[in-house]
């Protein structure tokens, strides 16, 4: 089993699992996906993207500039999809066990 993922990495991978995206859009999507609970700074996002890139879980997916600032896009790799699925399975199992002892709402 590989390294565990931090919460922010899980959300970033979840955003990229639905399609390639750029820095600002990832920040906005993570905030939306977590119901405003997780607000990434640009520093946190790019630190996470560097680690995910080094671990082979995300890769760059081109650069575009349609009128606005030039944007670099990122996409999830097959290894990233597996890591995300593993992490979700681990979290789901933990929630299932906690529900079993009445510590998590259904």
């Amino acid at each position: 089993m590989g390294k565990r993922l931090r919460e922010q990495s899980v959300f970033i991978l979840a955003v990229l699992a639905s399609g390639r995206s750029h820095g600002y859009a990832i920040i906005a999507s993570v905030e939306e996906l977590s119901d405003g609970r997780l607000t990434l700074t640009a520093g946190t996002l790019y630190g996470a993207l560097e680690r995910l890139h080094k671990a082979g879980l995300v890769e760059r997916a081109g650069e575009e500039s349609a009128g606005g600032p030039p944007r670099r896009y990122y996409e999830i790799t097959p290894a990233g999809q597996r890591a995300l699925a593993d992490e979700v399975a681990t979290l789901s199992e933990a929630v299932r066990q906690l529900r079993g002892v009445g510590l998590a709402s259904p």
Partner: peptide, 12 residues
């Protein structure tokens, strides 16, 4: 990368 990150900070 320098341009990208600084532009995202400005945008945020």
């Amino acid at each position: 990368k320098q341009r990208e990150v600084s532009s995202v900070v400005a945008e945020v």
